[in-house]
């Protein structure tokens, strides 16, 4: 045993790296094995149930039917996913941008916080589904109401987290900046904004998935394009495989946005909060 171990370690160079690579790939697979296994198992179970009970396709299509739907409706799916991506993305950007700027204002002016925080809570309390028709009436059937709704859905978690994040700098740290005669702008850029980053990204990850939901809900209410409109259309025409395919794409879109935010977070935040080991 010990002989084998020593001979492989001595072999050095490229084979070692190859083994390391295979090891890490296998490691990832092994790590996610339960998840992959469960997903595959559920799809197989679904297929089996549809078969066994002879469930009509319009009621619940089998995974195979859905796979065909992807193939047959590739063009429709593609032309409808693009506006949803655009709405979700722009809503994500504007909603978070407004939330961040408002949070910065709140931290520097307690009057502003007292005045506008309750209003923000009130707007959050309005069900999005109730707000959508109002916005459609005001802004019409175009992209604008969808972007606004996607933005509104992102706005609140980011506002709350960002205010907390900007206030998370320790009193001693702020004392230090005062001893150094730092200006408020310097404190914002050097201390408050960097220390708020973990809080911001926690909110952005929520916003990434909910912005897609916001865009789709808005398309539901009044639209002739987008994944939301496609869901309505497929439902009314009993095109169930297409409906399922649309749902899968919507979920994949949300997961993709979440993944992008996670990757940016991992690249940006390499430090650990003070005092932790």
């Amino acid at each position: 045993m010990s002989h084998i171990v020593s001979s492989t370690t001595k072999s050095g160079g490229a084979p070692d790296r190859k083994i390391a690579f295979l090891d890490s790939t296998a490691g990832v697979l092994v790590k996610h094995m339960p998840a992959i296994g469960a997903a595959v198992g559920l799809v197989v179970l679904w297929q089996f149930v549809v078969w066994f009970f002879k469930i009509p396709t319009f009621m619940a299509p089998s995974p195979v039917d859905v796979a065909y739907a992807f193939h047959d409706n590739a063009k429709i799916l593609w032309t409808n996913v693009l506006p949803t991506i655009l709405e979700a993305f722009l809503g994500f950007v504007f909603g978070n941008l407004v939330a961040i700027l408002l949070a910065i204002w709140f931290v520097h002016s307690s009057t502003a916080e007292k005045a506008f925080y309750p209003i923000a809570v009130f707007i959050k309390a309005i069900p999005i589904i109730a707000l959508a028709p109002i916005l459609v009436l005001i802004f019409g059937n175009g992209l604008a109401p969808k972007i606004i709704i996607a933005g509104l859905i992102c706005f609140f978690p980011t506002l709350v987290n960002m205010v907390q994040g900007l206030k998370s700098a320790s009193p001693a740290m702020l004392d230090l900046m005062r001893v150094l005669s730092a200006s408020n702008t310097e404190i914002l850029w050097k201390v408050r904004l960097p220390s708020s980053m973990p809080f911001l990204f926690a909110a952005l990850k929520i916003a990434a998935t909910s912005s897609v939901m916001g865009a789709i809900v808005a398309e539901w209410i009044g639209s002739s394009f987008g994944l939301g409109a496609l869901i309505i259309e497929a439902t009314y025409n009993f095109r169930s495989p297409l409906l399922y395919a649309t749902v899968v794409i919507a979920a994949a879109l949300a997961v993709a946005l979440f993944f992008i935010v996670s990757v940016i977070e991992a690249r940006m935040i390499r430090w650990k909060p003070a005092g932790s080991h």
Binding site: S170, A172, D175, L180, I187, V191, M197, P273
Partner: peptide
């Protein structure tokens, strides 16, 4: 004067050198 606190109050995202240089970057009028 300079102040040293009980907690080191280092900025956790800055490396040692950049933490030491912090006083040179802020309080420009000082």
């Amino acid at each position: 004067f300079a102040f040293v606190f009980q907690d080191a109050t280092l900025l956790p995202w800055r490396n040692v050198l950049d933490n030491v240089r912090l006083p040179l970057e802020v309080g420009k009028h000082a």
